[in-house]
Amino acid sequence: MKLIREGAFLTELIFQAELVSSSYRRLKGSADGFDKISVWSDIQSILISSGNISKILWPTWKYRERGEQLRQLLEIGSESVLKSRKIRNRFEHYDEFLDDFFKDKDICSYTDLAMNPSLSASIGGSCHRGYNSYNNTLVIHGETLNLNDIVDAVEQVRLKCKSLFV
């Protein structure tokens, strides 16, 4: 990979990582202040920016060589939590989930954007999106994502990228 192109991707990875870090710092204050809009804005920002990192490191087939080179340069293995974009995709394509969920239903239970105490009561049932600020986990469509794991992995990418500019 040519040096200027490599530098551009490393710079973008650092930028996206800093967006994740900034949103993560705000998230605690948003949750402590019971600011539901800010909580979900921060979560969405974390998911989108970490998803952008994932797309750079594990791109579509057309750009697979670039992804392989960057992962090798940054020593990122295929077991990285950043590889999967499943939760982010579910969050991003929530409209499709709603269409599928309500298809052919006249009566149903629907809980969305649950937090903390209300989250535990709705997990077994019909909670579609929920955030637990006590352990920083996100529940969406019955699957759980630990935001701490995402933030830690993103920080490692940021530090590795920055070390290459020294």
Rank of each mutant, 00 (worst) to 15 (best):
K2D: 14
R5F: 06
A8Q: 10
A8W: 13
A8L: 10
F9N: 09
F9S: 02
F9P: 04
L10I: 03
E12F: 09
I14F: 03
L19V: 15
V20M: 07
S23P: 07
L27E: 07
L27K: 10
K28V: 06
K36W: 14
I37L: 14
S38P: 05
W40R: 02
S41F: 12
I43S: 14
Q44P: 06
L47A: 03
L47F: 01
I48A: 09
S49P: 05
S49D: 03
I53E: 01
I53C: 07
I53S: 00
I56E: 01
W58D: 11
P59Q: 14
R64S: 06
E65K: 14
E68M: 03
Q69V: 05
Q69R: 14
R71Q: 09
Q72Y: 07
L74Y: 03
L74G: 00
L74R: 00
L74Q: 00
G77R: 14
K83L: 03
S84R: 05
I87W: 02
R90P: 08
Y94H: 13
D95E: 13
D99K: 11
D99E: 09
D100Q: 12
K105R: 13
K105Q: 15
I107L: 06
N116V: 11
L119T: 01
S120L: 15
A121W: 09
I123V: 15
G125P: 02
S133Q: 03
S133T: 00
Y134I: 10
Y134E: 15
N136Q: 08
N136A: 13
T137H: 05
T137F: 03
L147T: 04
I150Y: 00
V151R: 00
V151F: 01
V154Q: 06
E155W: 09
Q156C: 04
S163P: 09
L164Q: 10
L164P: 07
